[in-house]
Write a protein that binds this DNA or RNA. Sequence first.
DNA 1: TATTGTTATACTCTATAACTATA
DNA 2: TATAGTTATAGAGTATAACAATA
Lengths: 135, 135
Amino acid sequence: MVDELGFHLRRAQVAAFKQFAQTVTQAEDITPGLYGMLQVIANNPGLTQSALAEAMEVDRSSIVKVVNQLEDKGLIIRAAVPNDRRSYSLRMTAQGKLSLARIEDAVMRQDRDFSAALTETERGVLIGLLKRLGK
Amino acid sequence: MVDELGFHLRRAQVAAFKQFAQTVTQAEDITPGLYGMLQVIANNPGLTQSALAEAMEVDRSSIVKVVNQLEDKGLIIRAAVPNDRRSYSLRMTAQGKLSLARIEDAVMRQDRDFSAALTETERGVLIGLLKRLGK
DNA sequence: TATTGTTATACTCTATAACTATA
DNA sequence: TATAGTTATAGAGTATAACAATA
């Protein structure tokens, strides 16, 4: 069991979520899931809800509540799409951009703190190996 | 974002779960969570439900359904504890031991398959680095 | 007919609080 | 009083199916 990669992967990930909750979520009221959504929206301004769902690999019905939450927080807006009245295009608000910058700072600190036992080189090696997993 | 350890950790772990579901769960009807429980019970025969809950870092109320499932599958038994009639001691059944051996085979194959892109050395390095994360 | 967003519904996993039977 | 197991309940997070509006 101790030599199972899946086991150690899960253990590390659960620990990372717990630490995220105790730092970033507590300070900025953003869960790991919402943070991931914000990043996708910030890096793909104007994408539709369906596109966001596809990027996050979840069903588009599961996106609705998330987008509601981010909009209620004033971080993003749903805007009409000129040529398709079925769709909404998602964008960061000015406040959302400011908030995301602050959240990113907190996430970076948490991320570094979580891997504080590793050297910078080891951290890079770890990320490189993780990227090659799965298929 | 791409240099965030937490992001890559989560991505890899989600991929591992998906692959586990498509292989081990499909063949042996055991989820990653149930498999983890089985391992703890197999390696700590006679432990109580509360001890199992502590080992898995979940509330003891969350253990009840899991133990029911494993018992319904005939993999484990709840046995009376001599000096404390409040507790149950958990053990693998003979069939449970046989099943676990088969499940472990499937898990080992899945685990190797998941990290097929890595050399044996790299796989060892990855596990070693993962073990040092968190606090 | 097909697609977008939405709602209703359900299922899994987890937690908290309260109950029971013991200790 | 405290503890072990249980139950009821609730909250995330996810999925499927069906619907209205639009393409």
